[in-house]
Design a protein around this nucleic acid. Structure first.
Length: 649
RNA sequence: GGGCCCGUGGCCCAGUCAGGAUCAAGGCGCCGGCCUUCGGAGCCGGAGAACGUGGGUUCAAAUCCCACCGGGCCCGCCA
């Protein structure tokens, strides 16, 4: 017998047993929603019901007496996967699995379904767009931002394995000030061909340009403040100038040649700030020269991103250029639609969206998870110079996405929660109720550096490429030390897999709501509770199977009597349910935890019992099959979070 | 000032949304063992926790409710 989801079979048998017994004991009462919990320890059985504590309130019996009556009236003859039912504690009903049967089903199911084991499909697949990464193409991706593609890609893998039709989108933010700043500096330099990875090269140009322009702007502001005798403004401005000057000193130190060149070229300009704003305006207007320049820079930067992300196993189905939505008139159309609602007003020359009025009129508080009466700030839609803002364009983009999917998941840092909420409110205001309900902001917390705050504008960050490089370097050292027999080629391949796995694992294993503190030793961990540890356990399993050099054809699963063996069988049986929860609740981290826990059990087993040399051969074969099943589940779990499972390492 | 998120042994972290049972699960570090088998990136044992504080709900609270304290983020004609 083969089962897609063995634990669900056992659960449904328990439910049937409990329900029919309850009907006998309480003919007049109906019971809805009977839940089973996993008992704290294996000896208490594998599923438990605490229903008696609830019913006891309505009767004069104690939970214990009730539990005894219910268990007594169960039809034991109908048990198949249930070995026995016991009353325990103050009135729990504990269901024990019949492992003689169950082990056979679980192990054979995992082995036969193989790469499909655990990946239960939904009944009604949806078209889902997962938008993730979307780093502005003005500097290399840094570790802080890298958490995004790791989470986004894992979510996409989970949903796709769940049977949904998933499309991975990268939203290229080429409209806006930052890109204009970079393009301005790049143009000043005469559009040089990068001699290094393009995003790293452009990152330097962006930071230096941004810094120089900022200093110039602040100095002008300071002069103006002095001229107008605004004494209260000057100290703040002076402080800001000082700070940027120290950033400039850092940059000059790091990139002397590039710095001097940009300083000289930018000094020639009377008002760089104005030039940048003009470039931004021209680009939004779709003017040819601006288009050519900004697209060239952005494309160049994205080449670098693509290289980085492909290396860690992240790819996209669509690269959506923000500018397209402006040029195609979609943003304008959406603005037009918004203007026709009663939720838009002019204030000081800018167009504002009154999100709060929408929330009040439509009573959206509970939908947005807010306290009733909370006032949500308004959103500026259009600048005084007629250019649009990020969130405005995002409204158009979101509507576009919903033309292609029923559900949209935006993987975006939690610092953008308010903007994402305003975006959602705008959809409600426009009458896109279904879409708004299906717009998910998958928020995650930051990656922090112990010493200082990461700031891409100040050029203070650790590039993701450097982290990957370092991870692979350390993995190589480790592999060379531990597996000197591997060929040079194999060592390189394996260290790439291990290094990248370690990084991916570190960035997704913690709850996304919590911040990750970036420490090299933590991210590049090769000990327990890490990708390398799980990969190692997988390689060990492969090694046993290789050494055995036979198929486990005479396995007698009822010989798997050890508690540890049964715990492993149980863990394997639970994998499909863990997967369903991870996919439906968007929780990639529980896959990481699960894989780690299974690897723990497997290593303990490995240490405690012989497999190949076990006697009799029926037991040896059963253990071999168990090892094979563990191998399959570890690999499937790792693959769900984008980590390869090597057979040797 | 308002909103959102987080607070679990020296450090990191699971469990909190769907409340349950013996010691609140792991990891790092620390102490002591295992070079006996199939890979020591491993295994076994030990010390170490008022689950931020105070109330409340419940037969039962790390988990739900209220208040407070501490930390982060946001409240821009940035993204």
């Amino acid at each position: 017998m083969i089962s897609q989801n063995p634990m669900a079979e056992f659960r449904s048998e328990c439910l049937k047993a409990l329900t029919s017994s309850l009907e006998k004991v309480f003919p007049d009462r109906s019971f809805e929603q009977l839940n089973f919990a996993k008992p704290p320890v294996f000896e208490f059985g594998q599923l438990a019901s605490s229903i008696c504590f609830e019913i006891a309130k309505e009767t004069c019996e104690t939970p214990l007496q009730l539990a005894n009556r219910i268990v007594e009236s169960m039809d034991k003859a109908a048990f198949s996967l249930i070995e026995k039912v016991e009353v325990a504690g103050g009135g729990y009903i504990n269901f024990h699995i019949n492992f003689d049967k169950f082990s056979a089903i679980v192990i054979e199911s995992a082995r036969q379904l193989n790469e499909n084991y655990g990946l239960i499909k939904v009944e009604k697949p949806q078209r889902i767009i997962v938008e993730h990464t979307s780093v502005n193409p003005v500097h290399p991706i840094h570790v802080g931002q890298a958490r995004n593609p790791m989470l986004g890609d894992s979510i996409a893998r989970l949903l796709s394995s769940r049977g949904h039709v998933v499309s991975r989108h990268y939203y290229v933010d080429d409209v806006g000030r930052q890109t204009a700043v970079l393009a301005y500096g790049y143009n000043k330099l005469g559009r040089p061909k990068p001699a290094e990875k393009p995003d790293h090269f452009l990152g330097k140009i962006y930071t230096i340009t941004s810094c120089l322009v900022e200093i110039k702007r602040l100095k002008k502001e300071l002069e103006a403040a002095r001229a107008l005798n605004k004494e209260d403004e000057t100290p703040r401005l002076q402080r800001e100038i000082d700070e940027w000057i120290s950033v400039a000193a850092e940059l000059k130190e790091k990139y002397p040649q590039l710095f001097d060149e940009l300083l000289q070229k930018i000094s020639e300009d009377e008002d760089p700030e104005k030039a940048i704003n003009e470039l931004n305006r021209a680009y939004e207007a779709g003017e040819e020269k601006a288009r050519a320049l900004i697209r060239e820079v952005s494309q160049l930067c994205l080449e670098g991103f693509r290289e980085t992300l492909t290396r860690v196993g992240v790819t996209y189905d669509s690269w959506d250029w923000e500018s397209e939505f402006v040029w195609s008139g979609l943003v304008g159309k959406v603005l037009h639609m918004l203007k026709r609602t009663s939720y838009v007003f002019m204030q000081g020359g800018v167009l504002e969206f009154d999100a709060n009025k929408v929330v009040r009129d439509l009573s959206l508080w509970s939908k947005l998870g807010l306290r009733e009466g909370y006032e949500i700030p308004s959103l500026t839609l259009v600048r005084a110079d007629g250019t649009t803002l990020y969130t405005t364009r995002d409204i158009a983009y979101t509507i576009w996405k919903f033309g292609r999917a029923e559900k949209c998941i935006n993987v975006i840092g939690m610092e953008q929660s308010l903007a994402q909420m305003q975006l959602k409110v705008a959809l409600y205001a426009l009458g896109y109720w279904r879409q708004a309900d299906n717009l998910v902001h998958f928020a995650y917390n930051l990656v922090t550096l112990p010493g200082y705050k990461m700031s891409s504008r100040r050029g203070r960050y650790i590039a993701f490429d450097d982290v990957i490089e370092e991870a692979i370097r350390r993995a190589y050292e480790e592999v060379s030390k531990r597996s000197p027999n591997l060929s040079e080629e194999e060592k390189r391949q394996v260290s790439e897999i291990i290094g990248i796995g370690a990084v991916r694992y570190a960035l997704i294993a913690v709850d996304p709501a919590k911040p990750v503190e970036f420490k090299w030793d933590k991210v590049l961990d090769f000990e327990r509770n890490s990708a390398p540890y799980i990969q190692y356990s997988h390689a060990r399993a492969c090694s046993i199977l290789r050494k055995a050099a036979r198929k486990p054809e005479r396995a007698s699963y009822d010989l798997l009597r050890e508690k540890l063996e049964r715990e492993i069988v149980l863990a394997i049986a639970e994998f499909p349910e863990v997967f369903i929860e991870a996919a439906d609740m968007l929780k990639p981290n529980i896959i990481a935890e699960y894989a780690n826990a299974l690897a723990d059990k497997f290593n303990t087993f490995y240490n405690a019992f012989p497999v190949i040399k076990a006697e009799p051969v029926e037991l040896s074969d059963a253990r071999l099959a168990l090892v094979d099943a563990v191998r399959i589940v570890l690999r499937n779990a790792l693959n769900l979070i984008g980590i390869f499972a090597p057979e040797r390492m």
